[in-house]
């Protein structure tokens, strides 16, 4: 503080402004002080506006799985080069010990999860050991390999990993090895499982049995739909002509799983050297939002979980190995 200013203040403090000069000087000094403060403030504003922008250290929420943004996400290609540059996350699978029937055994090795997204799709790639791939479920005791991705709002209750909850529905992408075989090689019919099958007559289908062999289901299903009860009821599992091996479902807790109307999920599985590498994809923008399908947006956190069914171990339904509930971030 300058000597002059100290004197001035001393004068203001010690003597009540008694002289005329003093009475003029005090408001003048106050106005000058205010003006200097305002000038300093504006100077800083102008300086900030003129300076080149510094990249702000954005705070990203921590996530267990981070989906990398790519220009074109490989929605049905487990061998795409995109996957080579994508970080891999090791995810442990556990026993299913909540909903009976349980699966008490758990796999020895964790699965590997990768995730990417583009403007339209989010795609996951799951890799898991399956020494003996099970690709069919035609016979009574045959069960197919399968895997699934579960997505729900974050934060989610821990029980949401079992197909969501009533107030936080889970969007589930479910890849099935038998559906893929249906797409790849054509519908796995009765005669695929029982090559020596013979038939003499199917009531509504005169003349379709040639040389004692039954007709192909895909050729007769529409002509005799009443004789395929579940197909007649509209059950998507019974549809012999499959377009994708991935089913898009909604779950609001155990036992509530339901197929969504718009079956627009994508994916494909590749079995090589004792492991499945499966991609499962859904559109970022939900096509079944009225039914509870989740929208996925970059920069947001989501709850996610993964499950694997090992057909050779008789897995189906609740007999599965699920992961814990994890978090997913689209980078």
């Amino acid at each position: 503080m300058s000597v002059r200013r100290r004197r001035l203040i001393a004068r203001v403090g010690s003597k009540i402004a008694s002289t005329r000069a003093d009475r003029l000087l005090f408001p003048l000094l106050t106005a000058a002080s205010l003006a200097s403060i305002l000038l300093a403030y504006f100077y800083r504003q102008i300086e900030a506006a003129l300076k080149p922008t510094q990249p702000a250290a954005q705070e990203q929420p921590a996530a267990d799985i981070i989906a990398r943004r790519v220009s074109k996400a490989p929605v049905s290609d487990p061998e795409s080069p995109v996957w080579k540059d994508t970080p891999a996350y090791s995810v442990s699978l556990y026993d299913q010990s909540i909903v009976r029937p349980l699966k008490t055994a758990r796999p020895n090795q964790p699965i590997t999860v990768k995730a990417v997204y583009d403007d339209e799709w989010i795609v996951f790639r799951l890799s898991f050991r399956s020494e003996k791939p099970s690709k069919r479920s035609v016979k009574v005791a045959e069960f197919r390999d399968a895997c699934a991705v579960l997505l729900a709002r974050h934060p989610a209750a821990p029980e949401a990993r079992f197909m969501g909850t009533a107030d936080n529905p889970a969007t589930i992408l479910h890849w099935k090895a038998d559906w893929q075989l249906d797409v790849e090689e054509g519908f796995q019919d009765l005669e695929n499982a029982f090559p020596n099958v013979t038939a003499d007559y199917y009531p509504p289908l005169k003349g379709v049995v040639v040389d004692g062999k039954p007709p192909k289901t895909v050729d007769v299903a529409n002509k005799a739909v009443m004789y395929f009860p579940a197909l007649n009821a509209g059950n998507p599992l019974s549809e012999p002509i499959k377009k994708t091996p991935v089913e898009k479902l909604i779950g609001r807790g155990p036992g509530t799983l339901a197929t969504l109307p718009a079956q627009d999920a994508s994916g494909w599985g590749l079995w090589r050297d004792g492991s499945w590498h499966v991609v499962l994809a859904k559109r970022l923008k939900a096509t079944d939002s009225a039914q509870g399908e989740i929208d996925v947006e970059p920069g947001k956190l989501y709850a996610c979980a993964f499950s694997v069914w090992f057909g050779s171990e008789g897995d189906r339904g609740s007999r599965k190995n699920p992961s814990m509930l994890l978090t997913l971030l689209l980078q």
Partner: peptide, 9 residues
């Protein structure tokens, strides 16, 4: 189990 519709009856 129905071999073709793959559900139970």
């Amino acid at each position: 189990y129905n071999h073709v519709t793959r559900v139970s009856e």
